[in-house]
Nucleic acid binder design. Structure first.
Lengths: 203, 203
DNA sequence: GTCTATAGTTCGATAGAC
DNA sequence: GTCTATCGAACTATAGAC
């Protein structure tokens, strides 16, 4: 029950390197490629050291997920203050690297249940933040009746994520057209911030 | 080079059982849970038998992917002949089991490169079929200029897939609203097939 | 068609040396 | 803080018996 095992601190440079290597592995080869041995090899250290900083492999993955979501949350806050929050959310969600990592975690959730609860908890929280920003744009007139902000939020993130997922697999057909449609709709919903010609002289 | 190894025929009942078990494993525990041992155990046979029907584990996965896509293609053809192809595509893409398996394969593609090429090839083919059906609804007026059929096709499938992916992880916030928006838009795009009240008497 | 047996890998996790 | 050494488990793939 009580073992002699020791563990390292959370504010360690090596620990950070191990998390970086884990992210790289997930992106390059998928979550199933993550093992203490392979992570250690990337950093040039030994597998035992991974277990010094992370009790189990699950702990390593959860730690990476938390670090990733904290970074995502900061980006979200910045997007919230953008003059065109819908566009900001769209561009944030369409970021290939960041979103690819999120997708990998969502797939991992099916294999490692410890990840699953972590993801659901964060996602609902972030979604609330996003919806708040979207609501500021849509107002609460008839537009908001047909297009509730939380629904629009879900749709924007959903489309962006699927496009990233498809591109990762080498599917590109119709993507340019789909992006054009989304951007057209975003311009219509944010008329105040669409690019404009200078006002014509009064006649 | 030339080994004594033997292989079983493709039209074998056991082979079908092994593919079924593989699909079940992928759905229940993710692609990383698929191994010859676990697949064999589900069916109540030995790992060696899996290698009798499938040379490698990659071959097993590719075979399952092909079988799955063939079934999906048949559904697609049926949807094409629906009076409301947009809705049919939406409902087909929102099918949780079928789509969950597709998502699992897309994640797997990052880990097993043999799967990746297979997926891209099928997806582009299916997308063309879908776009053809969508084009019949949208016509080629101004609507089709702003909303090219292939783009609409991508968007419908993208939203559906992301919603399934989120629900698998336990994220539900905003889904009802998002679905309502999609269905509202589908009704608008397919006015001929929207549910109608009986015509009012001429006044 | 299905099995046993087995060689060779990779993995997670731990104790204890340095 | 990092390493060596190690146990036990799970995995792929193959040959050959039944």
């Amino acid at each position: 029950m009580n073992s002699t095992r020791r563990f390292g601190p959370e504010n360690s440079a090596t620990r950070t390197l191990l998390l970086d290597a884990t992210a790289q592995l997930m992106l390059d080869e998928g979550y199933a490629a993550v093992s203490t041995r392979r992570v250690a090899k990337i950093v040039g250290l030994t597998p035992a050291l991974v277990h010094y900083y992370f009790r189990t492999t699950d702990d390593l993955l959860v730690a990476l997920y938390r670090r990733t979501t904290e970074q995502n949350l900061e980006r979200l806050k910045a997007a919230q203050n953008s003059p065109a929050p819908l566009t900001a959310l769209w561009e944030l969600s369409a970021d290939a690297v960041r979103t690819s990592l999120t997708i990998e975690f969502m797939a991992l959730a099916n294999h490692r249940k410890a990840i699953k609860v972590e993801i659901a908890r964060y996602a609902e929280f972030a979604r609330g933040m996003q919806a708040h920003a979207v609501a500021q744009v849509l107002g609460d007139g008839m537009l908001a009746t047909d297009f509730p902000p939380i629904g629009v939020t879900v749709l924007i993130a959903a489309v962006a994520r699927s496009l990233v997922m498809e591109e990762n697999v080498g599917i590109h057909g119709g993507h340019a057209e789909a992006r054009a449609i989304v951007e057209l709709l975003l311009r219509r919903a944010q008329p105040d911030h669409a690019p404009k010609l200078p006002p014509a002289p009064a006649s």
